[in-house]
Design a protein around this nucleic acid. Structure first.
Lengths: 153, 153
DNA sequence: ACTATATAGTTCGACGTTGAACGAACGAGA
DNA sequence: TCTCGTTCGTTCAACGTCGAACTATATAGT
């Protein structure tokens, strides 16, 4: 079942991308604690990887999501006590967002819960395959993103 | 090698997959005529590629969406006059779905509208890259799909 | 100082999807 | 024939996201 034309190849490629995104998301969220969604875990993960606070607008840009979606995500994380939100003392419009201790604990629990699936994945597929495919995905993402400035993250 | 970087590798991989799916979907739907969504175009595309009618349940399995989602998709396509839905004479529960002439025309218009973006993509990235990455994506999809039977499509 | 433009964050309605519940109809077995 | 389990298609609430409108604040140009 090899695609004949380039158009079919590209269509098949994006088709797989879309379905993998959907299935992967569902599988992730099935095991995440606290009913967390990927978008929410991603924000926690962001804070744990880069040890610094951020702002809703900057996070929205980081995750390529509208500001409205980030308002929603941060609101839920805040309701769970996983992030701390305070007005920016230097910018009357802005807010500062930072992770809490409970947020770190939740992130650790998330990592615990997704590790089995990830290791099974890594034992089923040679990780080199993922590593080999990653550059294409990254440049494709950058291309689709319209060559937008992306110096933060 | 190190388990920690493997985890990060997999996470980065799925992260790119998710964002590409989101950006690609948005880019597709921005140019599709009739306000069609990818899910709807996919159904039209399915009918044009395979010259035969189908049923809502079978389509839902083909595209790995719930039956409820397919009810919605087919309802919109039917409202636009792009598919024809009739009760299955041999199965009192089922329905037969088939594409209409207007549906074929709409599909052709869709192809016309997305071709420029696809050719630009094919000129920016070597198609061999996509071809090389496709097997991993396909087997990954099959893996995430839980080794479900998939003999139709 | 004034104006114009840009940015921060929120809110709202619309949309597609999920997951679950449901009634209807099929199919196999006793 | 009657039952049991399965499948078909629909409906519904919940959820996340988008896009657009909106207020408030910042910033640059004149």
């Amino acid at each position: 079942m090899k695609p004949e034309s380039e158009e079919q190849l590209l269509f098949a490629f994006f088709n797989e991308i879309g379905i993998i995104a959907q299935l992967g998301r569902a599988q992730f969220e099935r095991v995440l604690p606290h009913g967390l969604k990927i978008s929410q875990f991603s924000v926690l993960n962001h804070f744990v990887r880069l040890e610094r606070d951020s702002t809703p607008a900057r996070l929205a840009r980081n995750f390529q999501v509208t500001k409205g979606a980030m308002t929603n995500t941060l609101g839920r994380l805040h309701a769970l006590g996983f992030v701390d939100i305070s007005p920016d003392p230097r910018d009357g419009r802005g807010k500062r967002v930072r992770i809490t201790c409970a947020g770190r604990a939740a992130h650790a629990a998330c990592v615990q819960s997704i590790t089995p699936g990830l290791t099974e994945l890594a034992s089923t597929f040679a990780p080199e395959q993922f590593r080999a495919a990653l550059p294409l995905l990254q440049s494709l993402r950058a291309y689709l993103d319209g060559a937008r400035d992306r110096f933060d993250d």
